[in-house]
Amino acid sequence: MKQPRLLIVEDEPHLKETWQQMLEIFGHQAHFSKNGLEATKALEKEQFDLIVTDIQMPVKDGYFVLDYIQSKEIKSNVWVCTGQLAFDERLDAYSVDRVIFKPFNMLGLVQEIGDLFQ
């Protein structure tokens, strides 16, 4: 089985830690960034199969990451996690594969990641 290269952009430390633990159980590894700026720096250096990004973050938010992905024509799968209650129409401007509303079913998501890159 090919190991998917994952980038998780999440500022909440507990949530980041839980992603890490959950992915580990299923044998995945991920690169973690805690804001939009860190994420774009990682994207400069590396290619990822899947980018999971939060929207509201300090320093630079998720839209900063989405702008970067769009401008560099990065072809990764992009999932957006948002703590907002309703769909933000700003997302319509980007090619996003999936919008996930918090709180989400992390176990389900990790299993899907496994299925996606089998």
Binding site: H14, L15, W19, I25, G83, Q84, P103, F104, M106
Partner: peptide, 25 residues
């Protein structure tokens, strides 16, 4: 008000759910 606090509440809820799932595993 709900929209305002949603982000603050939904993040910890996401942690709670994921940790619960983790505990089960």
């Amino acid at each position: 008000f709900a929209a305002g606090i949603a982000h603050e509440v939904n993040n910890p809820l996401a942690v709670l759910i994921a940790k619960t799932q983790l505990l089960e595993l």
